[in-house]
Design a protein around this nucleic acid. Structure first.
Length: 418
RNA sequence: GCGACCGUGGUGUAAAGGUUAACAUCGAAGCUUGUGGAGCUUUUGAUCUGGGUUCGAUUCCCAGCGGCCGCCCCA
């Protein structure tokens, strides 16, 4: 080992280590996402984190792929990109087997994605993002289901409807206004991006005027005069019928991306200080066309782990750590070690998660260690137990003890002894 | 890519242009050779990196790196 250069224990810039307590939170978030998706009939899929760079070129601006992605050449001089998002991968997979997939298809995945950019609150270089998509149908019921799914996941985390709201709009509103005013195709993407940031931007009017001149005021007036549409009201009524009561129409919601074609939505944190956007999605009916086949209508959303973790912290919804290890066998002296490992083996056959303490430390230290690891139960194993066949289960939280024979230990643990 | 603030043991804090960088906590050992949470004793362990100013820099200055926050961007 080179003495001049001490290896750092820090993770790479912008990515996280997940120590057991962190991974517990991560798993908690993933499990609620997965479980809720599956309750709605969504099937899980996955893919490699590496994609050919070409996949992102047609759909994405060159600045983004050049400056904000992890792109490198492999040994065969192919250009490879670590996926910055999942949707192109999904479109690729769907288009590749479109004849074999029964539509409508309901798919979800929780991939990690990479973006090479400056880190800040809620934004890291590696994040995980639930992607849930409903493909092959363009009906309003599909739009409603996607929003209801997003709502159900928030509820599964314990979020109250008062603590978040679902702002919904429709890209067709924008397109109609663009048509009416005669904004040319080149300017539309820029105008949409401006509109998307309208509330948080300074001098919005000035910047808009720069792009479309004196049509700016007409456009703003036209959009502001539209408070809702028949479609959005129908969507609201469908959502009400399936338990979603916090949808609001907000025609200022645009979403930054060009590929949306219909309903768009964004979920906001409504807690006092930061009423920020948590995640969102919408309908994109043309995306699979880039693979040359027919267009497959689709609607979906992406929900990031970093933002959700922040939300859970803000609203005191973080779960407390519970280790999967239920029991630690504390070995009183070295001569009892083989007896303890045999007992552990038998308990595992009875489905008990059990660890044997190999430390050789004093029994008190072993108990302290089990307590620090938040393990619920310990059994001291020594000469007494070996001779008598009787074991004392101790609950570390309450201090209660219960003595029983080896074959009854599992039953007692599962019947939630105090 | 731009800007603000920050960088002292594993963690949280303190101090000072000049003797041995302090406190708490955690870790290790013991008081206590079969039962944890308290107490006491002992003990390991730190000034991000490089350059400059200076007799002397961990402290001041510059750069880099890292953190955090904002902007840009957000596929």
């Amino acid at each position: 080992m080179n003495k001049d250069h001490q290896l750092s224990t820090d993770p790479y810039k912008g990515v996280r280590d997940f120590y057991p307590a962190d991974q517990f939170i991560q798993s908690y978030i993933f499990e609620h996402m997965s479980r809720t998706c599956e309750l709605f009939g969504y099937e899980e899929y996955n893919a490699s984190v590496m994609e050919p760079t070409d996949l992102y070129l047609s759909k994405t601006s060159s600045e983004i792929i050049n400056d904000q992605s992890y792109t490198f050449s492999d040994r065969g001089e192919r250009s490879v990109t670590l996926r910055p998002e999942m949707t192109p991968t999904l479109a690729r997979m769907i288009a590749g087997k479109s004849r074999d997939i029964p539509f409508p298809a309901r798919w979800y995945s929780i991939p990690n994605c990479f973006r090479y950019e400056r880190t800040q609150k809620g934004r890291l270089r590696e994040f995980w993002q639930l992607n849930a998509d409903l493909l092959g149908v363009s009906s309003i019921e599909a739009d409603a289901e996607i929003i209801a799914l997003a709502h159900a996941i928030m509820r599964s985390f314990g979020a109250d409807e008062r603590n978040f709201e679902i702002r919904v709009s429709d890209r067709r509103l924008l397109d109609a206004a663009y048509d009416a005013i005669g904004i040319d195709a080149d300017a539309r993407a820029d105008v949409t991006r401006l509109l998307d940031k309208r509330d948080k931007m300074e001098d919005f009017d000035g910047k808009l005027a720069k792009v479309i001149g004196n049509n700016a005021q007409r456009l703003v007036d036209m959009l502001d005069s539209t408070t809702s549409t028949a479609y959005l009201e129908q969507l609201r009524s469908q959502l009400n019928a399936i338990g979603v009561g916090n949808m609001i129409v907000d025609t200022k919601i645009a979403r930054g991306f060009d590929y949306y074609t219909g309903m768009v939505f964004e979920v906001f944190d409504t807690s006092g200080e930061n009423r920020r956007s948590l995640f969102g999605g919408g309908r994109y009916d043309n995306l699979t066309q880039m693979f040359g086949g027919e267009a497959i209508p689709a609607v979906g959303f992406g929900m990031g782990d970093v933002t959700m973790r922040d939300y859970l912290e803000t609203h005191n919804l973080m779960p407390s750590y519970v280790p999967t290890t239920e029991l630690m066998l504390c070995v009183v002296d070295a001569s009892a070690m083989s007896h303890a490992t045999k007992l552990a083996h038998d308990l595992r056959l009875d489905d008990v998660s059990v660890a044997v303490n190999f430390s050789g430390k004093k029994i008190g230290d072993q108990i302290r260690q089990a307590d620090k690891m938040k393990i619920a139960y310990i059994i001291a194993v020594g000469e007494q137990e070996r001779n008598s066949g009787q074991y004392t289960i101790k609950n570390l939280a309450t201090g209660h003890e219960l003595t029983t024979s080896a074959d009854k230990i599992a039953d007692h643990l599962f019947s939630a002894m105090g």
